[in-house]
Simulated scan of single mutants.
Amino acid sequence: MNLGSILDSLMANQRNQGSFGGRPGQPGMGGMQGGMGDLASRIPGGMGGLAGGALLSMILGRGAGRSAGGSLLKAGGLAVLASVAFKAFEDWKAKQAPAPGQPANLPTQPPAGSGFHLDEEKDKEGNEMGLALVQAMISAAKSDGHLDGEESIRIQEQIQQLGLGNEEKGFLLDLMAKPADAAAIARLPRTKEQAAELYVASRIAIGDVNTPEERAYLDRLVALLDLPGDLVAHLDTQVDAARKTLAA
Results as ranks from 00 to 15, higher is better:
Met129Phe: 13
Ser139Ala: 06
Met129Arg: 01
Phe171Lys: 00
Val222Gln: 15
Pro44Ala: 02
Ala196Gln: 11
Leu173Cys: 01
Ile185Pro: 03
Leu224Trp: 07
Gln161Lys: 13
Val222Met: 04
Glu167Ala: 12
Asp123Ile: 14
Asp8Cys: 15
Lys124Ile: 15
Gly35Trp: 07
Leu39Ser: 05
Pro24Asp: 05
Leu81Tyr: 00
Asp230Gln: 06
Gly207Ile: 04
Ala75Ile: 01
Pro24Cys: 09
His234Ile: 09
Gln156Cys: 10
Asp91Glu: 12
Gln156Ser: 12
Ala82Asp: 11
Ala82Leu: 03
Ser9Asn: 13
Ala97Phe: 06
Val209Gly: 09
Ala241Gln: 06
Lys87Gly: 00
Gly76Pro: 04
Gln194Met: 12
Gly207Ala: 09
Gly48His: 12
Val134Cys: 05
Phe116Asp: 09
Gly61Thr: 02
Glu120Trp: 10
Gly113Gln: 11
Gln158Tyr: 07
Gly45Ala: 03
Asp219Ile: 11
Gly126Ile: 09
Phe89Arg: 03
Glu214Ala: 07
Ala104Leu: 13
Lys87Cys: 00
Pro212Asn: 09
Ser5Arg: 14
Asp240Ala: 15
Asp236Arg: 14
Ile43Asn: 13
Leu39Cys: 11
Gly22Asp: 06
Met1Val: 13
Ala177Gly: 10
Leu231Met: 09
Ser71Asp: 08
Leu231His: 03
Leu133Lys: 01
Ile138Asp: 06
Asp240Phe: 07
Gly45Gln: 08
Gln161Val: 01
Glu150Tyr: 11
Gly28Asn: 11
Asn166Glu: 13
Thr191Val: 01
Gly70Ser: 15
Gly126Leu: 04
Gly37Thr: 12
Ile155Tyr: 04
Tyr199Trp: 13
Ile153Tyr: 03
Gly52His: 07
Ala247Lys: 14
Lys122Tyr: 10
Glu157Arg: 15
Ser202Cys: 05
Pro24Leu: 12
Leu50Lys: 04
Asp208Trp: 05
Gly53Asn: 05
Gln102Asp: 14
Gly101Asp: 15
Leu162Gln: 11
Leu175Gly: 02
Ala247Val: 14
Tyr217Ser: 03
Asn16Glu: 14
Arg243Leu: 11
Leu224Thr: 06
Arg243Glu: 07
Arg66Cys: 09
Glu90Ser: 13
Tyr199Met: 07
Pro212Lys: 09
Leu188Gln: 07
Glu197Trp: 08
Gly65Asn: 07
Ala184Gly: 08
Gly31Asp: 05
Glu150Ile: 05
Ser83Trp: 02
His234Ala: 06
Pro24Trp: 09
Gly149Phe: 01
Leu3Lys: 02
Leu39Pro: 01
Glu167Asp: 06
Asp148Trp: 00
Met32Lys: 14
Pro103Asn: 10
Phe89Met: 12
Ile206Arg: 00
Pro100Arg: 06
Ile159His: 03
Arg215Met: 09
Glu150Gln: 15
Gly113Ile: 09
Ile155Cys: 05
Pro103Tyr: 11
Asn13Met: 03
Leu7His: 04
Glu168Ser: 13
Leu225His: 02
Gly31Val: 05
Leu106Trp: 10
Gln96Phe: 07
Ala205Pro: 02
Gly145Cys: 00
Gln17Glu: 15
Ala85Cys: 07
Ala51Trp: 01
Pro212Ala: 08
Gly35Leu: 09
